[in-house]
């Protein structure tokens, strides 16, 4: 494998001042294990400081640097040059912001607006069940946790939402479904009825058609579609159903 690559990034840029959008090409020399965020920084430092992009932890733990590379939504901090060239079989990459929320500038999209959909499913314990005693933790068997623990690994990078066959405008999104399912399955949550109402509501699970693009793109390798399908099967303990 080569130790260096000549990379071309065709970046979709957007200037909010005059609402202009265009594609800009950048040519770079890159070592084989540089990540795409390193490439963006390289562009900033060496070629164009005005190019804006988003990131935070830069090691796949926060989900801020999501972009679309050749149409695939992914985390720019996790994509190594060498892997990208191999996967897409080209050294030329189209780089675009996710379309799950309005673009603020270049690759920066408005995560606050995207998160509004997560807020709607109430990503917390609405009404906690009583713990065994005042000074005690709940007892949850590892087997019970196994049902939903993978869903808690979601970092809300919105890659799934971007890849989904349904539109993010009408669907709360696969990640919102995960957040909801966690508390549906969590024995510490007492308030299930309210959750199910949102889950089965107009913007809920029935916007999913098991195209499984969410599972395909998920950077945390969560089988998102599995959890949505669990919700559709509807076979969990619902106190209101008994």
């Amino acid at each position: 494998m080569a130790s260096h690559y000549h990379i071309t990034l065709k970046i979709r840029r957007y200037d909010p001042e005059n609402r202009r959008s265009w594609i800009q090409n950048y040519h770079l020399e890159a070592g084989r294990i540089l990540r795409f965020v390193d490439l963006f920084r390289k562009i900033n430092n060496e070629q164009d400081p005005t190019f804006s992009w988003n990131s935070s932890c830069e090691h796949g733990q926060c989900g801020t640097c999501s972009v679309k590379i050749n149409g695939k939504p992914l985390l720019a901090c996790e994509l190594l040059v060498e892997n990208a060239v191999q996967y897409f079989n080209t050294p030329v990459f189209n780089v675009e912001p996710l379309e799950v929320a309005p673009v603020v500038r270049d690759l920066v999209f408005d995560l606050t607006k995207a998160y509004k959909r997560i807020d709607q499913v109430k990503p917390y314990v609405i009404s906690p069940a009583n713990p065994p005693s005042d000074q005690d933790e709940y007892s949850i068997s590892p087997n019970e946790m196994k049902q939903y623990i993978n869903a808690t690994r979601c970092i809300n990078c919105f890659c799934c939402s971007s890849a989904c066959i349904s539109s993010h405008r009408n669907f709360l999104g696969p990640n919102a479904m995960l957040a909801s399912m966690i508390r549906v399955l969590d024995p510490r949550e007492k308030e299930k009825a309210q959750r199910l109402k949102i889950l089965y509501g107009h913007r809920g699970v029935y916007r999913c058609h098991s195209s499984r693009a969410c599972s395909f793109v998920c950077p945390k390798e969560i089988d998102v579609a599995h959890f949505v399908a669990l919700a559709k099967a509807g076979r969990f303990n619902d106190p209101n159903n008994e």
Binding site: K68, N70, G71, K72, P73, Y87, F88, A163, I165, H209, S210, S211, R212, A213, S215, F216, V217
Partner: peptide, 18 residues
Amino acid sequence: SVYVKSRGWYFVIAWAHR
């Protein structure tokens, strides 16, 4: 093939189904 790379086979199948 573009969608297979970026969304996976099941995405293409889902569209075909539709």
